[in-house]
Amino acid sequence: MEHQADNELLQLFNNGSSHYAFNLIIKKYQQRVYTHVRRMVIDHDDASDLTQNTFIKVWHNLPKFREDSQLFTWIYRIATNECLNFLKNKRKRFFLPIGDVEGELSDKLAHEPSLKGDAIEMKLQKALLLLPEKQRLVFNMRYYNEMKYEEMSEVLGTSVGALKASYHHAVQKIENYLTSD
């Protein structure tokens, strides 16, 4: 499906067709947002809720969007904050240390039908869960979404240098985990 350019969508939104334009924005970005969120929270229902919350926030804040950044970078930033807040609240609610949240996510991985029978992929996903949350975010954005460091910097509000270092550490840890017995 061919999607309209962001600036056209924003024009539509600002010129009285806000609901129609918003619908097109959802259609254009829903899959990328969902996948990004799902990789962070693993569970489909949680990912579904967070994706919906992300777009609800987009709707409420779009009139204030100043086009200083790209539309998708901005949406990505909202989705990322939703994920980080969700994981933080999960820890707070159950007084869980970081390791326990990752343990819970790891259990969910074990029940993921698409990973059954794919031992290498399962090992890779388990390795990812051993990373600190922000390092996992950086890895996902660079490895899976193939984002430029500059875009990642906009989303995460971190310097390009710090992101490069973070990605390098993440890759090393995963490589070590995958090549160990």
């Binding site: 799902r38 990912a47 698409s114 794919d118 992929e121």
Partner: peptide, 22 residues
């Protein structure tokens, strides 16, 4: 390794997502 998207949404999930959000 081949890059895979291991986390597929259930079939039809994206078809009514926008109406759920609305």
């Amino acid at each position: 390794l081949e890059k895979k998207n291991s986390f597929q949404a259930p079939e039809g999930f994206f078809e009514d997502l926008s109406s759920k959000i609305e």
